[in-house]
Design a protein around this nucleic acid. Sequence first.
DNA 1: TGCTTGACAGAAG
DNA 2: CCTTCTGCCAAGC
Length: 110
Amino acid sequence: MKDYPDRMTAEQAGKFGEDVLNIVSQIPRGRVTTYGAIAAWAGWPSHSRMVGRILRYSPEAEALPCHRVVNKEGRTAPGWSRQRMLLEEEGVLFRSNGHVDMNRFLWEPE
DNA sequence: TGCTTGACAGAAG
DNA sequence: CCTTCTGCCAAGC
């Protein structure tokens, strides 16, 4: 039972950021993955919100396929309607409710 | 130092 | 299906 917060040191935060960007760069065209999964693979399962922060504010993310990251329900980022267009151009199909069909397009690394 | 804000997740109504 | 709440944790103010 952890009785203290599992916080990151500045150094760990830096590595976490690198790992997140590295993972995003590996998402195949026409596939998507989730914030929580990326955080878990980077070693910090409870930091899914930090993944979103990094993709939105880190300049490096500009050159990466960050439009291939959606939340676990397949919803696209709020206030970024262009994300859906980009995904549809790659062949990602959306359900009638506006969510990505995660059963078919969710990608997970080894 | 303390309260608020999210590109989240999960549960509840 | 949609909204709201709680847990989460770094950043901003």
